[in-house]
């Protein structure tokens, strides 16, 4: 689609939505939100971009292959799962870092897991949508 309005709007919305998605991811720790819904937001933003500019252009903006994102996400999830075991606790038990990260507060393997979900959702959704769009 080559509508000027859509193209301009998606270009402006993309960074906004990505930031919002990161906000939702972080907010999800104690309030409604989290990696899954944040990931869907990001994927939605990028697929709107792909709709306006074409999948090839969206891939260029994304820079990495969506499947790499999916893989990275799975690695984060597995790392969070095994961290609990390595600490001698149950699978996926949350472990908190002893220090605070400025701007984020306390970080934990829970956040790592959520980040993994986020990346996984973005990667999976986009690899399906881009392929459908390119056919």
């Amino acid at each position: 689609m080559s509508s000027v309005i859509l193209r301009t709007a998606t270009r402006l919305l993309l960074p906004l939505l990505l930031v919002f998605s990161a906000f939702i991811l972080l907010r999800g720790h104690n309030e409604p939100g989290g990696g899954f819904i944040g990931g869907l937001l990001s994927a939605g933003a990028l697929s709107a971009y792909a709709l306006a500019w074409g999948p090839a252009e969206a891939r260029r903006v994304l820079r990495v292959d969506p499947r790499t994102l999916l893989g990275a996400g799975l690695l984060c999830v597995c790392a969070a799962a095994f961290a609990g075991i390595a600490a001698g606790r149950e699978v996926l038990t949350g472990l908190w870092a002893p220090f605070e990260v400025p701007g984020l507060g306390k970080v934990s393997t829970v956040l790592l897991f959520d980040l993994g979900v986020h990346l996984g959702v973005v990667g999976a959704t986009l690899s399906i949508l881009f392929n459908l769009g390119e056919d």
Binding site: D65, R67, T68, L70, G71, A72, L74, L75, V77, C78, A81, F82, I85, V91
Partner: peptide, 22 residues
């Protein structure tokens, strides 16, 4: 015991590693 989680952890790790070896 970790056993009930293995059916999930094994294929998930395998998937993650396969993606890493893209």
């Amino acid at each position: 015991s970790l056993l009930p989680a293995l059916p999930v952890l094994v294929p998930l790790s395998a998937a993650a590693l396969s993606f890493a070896a893209w």
